[in-house]
Design a protein around this nucleic acid. Structure first.
Ligand code: MN
Ligand code: MN
Ligand code: ZN
Ligand code: ZN
Lengths: 143, 143
DNA sequence: ATTAATATTGATAATTATTATCAATATAGC
DNA sequence: GCTATATTGATAATAATTATCAATATTAAT
């Protein structure tokens, strides 16, 4: 299943790079794969801390970066807030509607928009690699 | 012309809010309206410093915020870099293609994408107010 | 023009988030 | 087990933004 594949990707990446698999690294990986959407470093730090008292903040930070490098995680930077991470492996690409009042993230996807973006880039002799589409406004409850 | 209208907008905003029109404020406004695209606070600070030796960084920062509030400027936050500002008044809305190698910004606009975004928001009971579309990749020269 | 109320300024401190440093320790291959 | 070295955790450094505050400037009223 996806959980195990994700773990394999991480383990392979670790091995390829000549890195080592530590207890902390495992705890952080597990916690991340079990996490919900759009978590901050603090979120993950606090979660891991419960079962791993002596974990350091920097270690969580470093390993989230590592998971991002190997494609398991995606960084999301919203406004001036702190960086959030979300699971990427086994999750389709999507964009976000962000409520300016309650902070809710709605995940959306529109193939037409995606294709038009490709065209738009092409028309400008630009080779797109990734994009960020964030629509800010008010959600159903807040408007 | 646009330059004067922009200035009027700022002056009206100042007056409405019971604020005061200072030499520094005027210098910063003029410099901003004469500025090119996507400038940082430092950029504007250095420009204004040439004719206004004793200007403070915080004053430039505060006034850029003020210009943003009244609709003259737009903030652009790219990756982890510092905030950039661009002129908004008299400039059509656009999105950006950003070269990951040379840092070039290409300004683009696609009405179809804009309309599809509206639809997408609507389909999610979301009232969109503004959005950010950034496509990262390689420009003609860099690929 | 004086005055009084208060908004603004500039220097600097505080805050926030991220990243670097480094000695102690843990890991992996032999 | 031994060795080379990657990792960790505490903390410092960095970077960007925002807050503080006493001195000063602006505005409107007199
Ligand atoms: Mn998401
Ligand atoms: Mn632009
Ligand atoms: Zn909401
Ligand atoms: Zn380029």
């Amino acid at each position: 299943m996806a959980r195990n594949n994700a773990k394999d990707i991480f383990l392979n990446y670790i091995k390829e790079k000549g890195l080592r698999y530590t207890k902390q690294r495992e705890a952080i990986l597990e916690a991340f794969l079990a996490s919900g959407k759009h978590i901050t470093i603090d979120d993950l730090y606090n979660t891991v801390k419960k079962t791993n008292q002596e974990i350091g903040y920097a270690t969580v930070h470093r390993n989230l970066k590592l998971m991002t490098e190997c494609g398991l995680a995606d960084e999301i930077k919203i406004g001036s807030h702190k960086t959030r991470f979300e699971q990427k492996y086994g999750h389709e690409h999507h964009d976000h509607l962000i409520c300016m009042k309650c902070g809710k993230f709605i995940e959306v996807h529109d193939d037409k928009i995606e294709r038009l973006q490709e065209k738009l880039a092409e028309a400008n002799d630009f080779a797109p690699q990734r994009h960020k589409l964030e629509i800010y406004g008010l959600c159903k409850k807040c408007r």
